[in-house]
């Protein structure tokens, strides 16, 4: 095979990105809607102290997964920036993950419909 190994598949990159989007999205919801209210009104920092740093480092992994997918799928810088900022606003990570997944399936699906099977398989 002469195609560079890193170009062989986007499937893995998309799966990794989606997994991290769900993880980071959930972590942020816990942090914002459980941890911070408890810190403010419950006067206990326990939840924030545990979830905060974990979420921070998971977000770092999310960034790497997003960059990896953006490079493989030839996304523009704009879409990468949207993916990056999606991890920072509650609920938005889920929405963007769905949009990315849908658009990639639409493009792959369109290929299937207009495929000329014998020519290049």
């Amino acid at each position: 095979m002469s195609v560079p190994k890193r170009f062989r598949s986007m499937d893995g990159a998309l799966k990794r990105y989606r997994f991290m989007a769900y993880t980071v999205g959930t972590g942020l919801l816990i942090l914002v809607f459980v941890g911070i209210p408890i810190q403010i009104w419950g006067h206990s920092k326990t939840v924030v102290a545990i979830v905060g740093p974990i979420h921070g480092y998971l977000y770092l992994i999310y960034l790497v997964a997003a960059l990896d997918l953006a490079r493989r799928a030839r996304f523009g810088i704009g879409r990468l920036l949207v993916m990056i900022s999606a991890g920072l606003v509650p609920f938005v990570a889920f929405i963007i993950e769905r949009k990315i997944e849908k658009s990639m399936h639409a493009e792959l699906g369109a290929v299937d419909e207009s495929a000329e099977p014998a020519e290049h398989r």
């Binding site: 095979m1 195609v3 170009f7 062989r8 598949s9 986007m10 499937d11 893995g12 493989r72 799928a73 030839r74 990639m104 493009e107 792959l108 369109a110 290929v111 299937d112 495929a115 290049h120 398989r121």
Partner: peptide, 12 residues
């Protein structure tokens, strides 16, 4: 997997 990726690039 490679086929799907090539299809994608072709589509683009």
């Amino acid at each position: 997997a490679l086929g799907a990726y090539n299809d994608y690039l072709e589509q683009l």
